[in-house]
């Protein structure tokens, strides 16, 4: 069964990497938004969302990513998703998130795209 949501963060230069694991539900989405906000307040505007360890999301959790994108748009920031499972990629695509965020097949490729 899909695990409980957890979030790890890592900073590489001026890029914030947030790595999710488990079910991105309402609580998970809120955690993503509040951790992002912490770093955004410190000036981080380039973000990689590594979703390799998440296989299940729901629309409530993902709607918090729209909040992240909105804040990044305000200061020319950039969000790149990495390691998306096909059904998560499809979910984000239906929601139109790729009009405002990019996707790459690995964190390294996402970092290269931001460099």
């Amino acid at each position: 069964m899909e695990a409980e949501f957890a979030l790890k963060t890592e900073v590489r230069g001026d890029v914030l990497i947030m790595a999710t694991s488990g079910y991105v539900n309402n609580d998970g989405g809120q955690q993503i938004a509040s951790v992002f906000e912490e770093y955004h307040a410190k000036g981080f505007s380039r973000v990689v969302m590594d979703m390799k360890e998440s296989k299940v999301v729901n629309s409530i959790g993902i709607s918090f990513l729209i909040e992240v994108i909105e804040k990044l748009n305000d200061n020319n920031g950039k969000l790149i998703f990495a390691n998306l499972a096909p059904s998560i990629e499809k979910t984000l695509s239906i929601m139109g998130l790729f009009n405002y965020a990019a996707k790459e097949s690995s964190v390294d490729k996402a970092l290269a795209a931001l460099a």
Partner: peptide, 24 residues
């Protein structure tokens, strides 16, 4: 019907469940 362009500037970001079900 939800629309990402409108959601970005709205306080209500939710409202995607039915659209996902319809589309998938």
């Amino acid at each position: 019907q939800p629309d990402i362009d409108k959601k970005l500037s709205s306080g209500h970001k939710r409202g995607w469940g039915l659209k996902l079900m319809e589309t998938m």
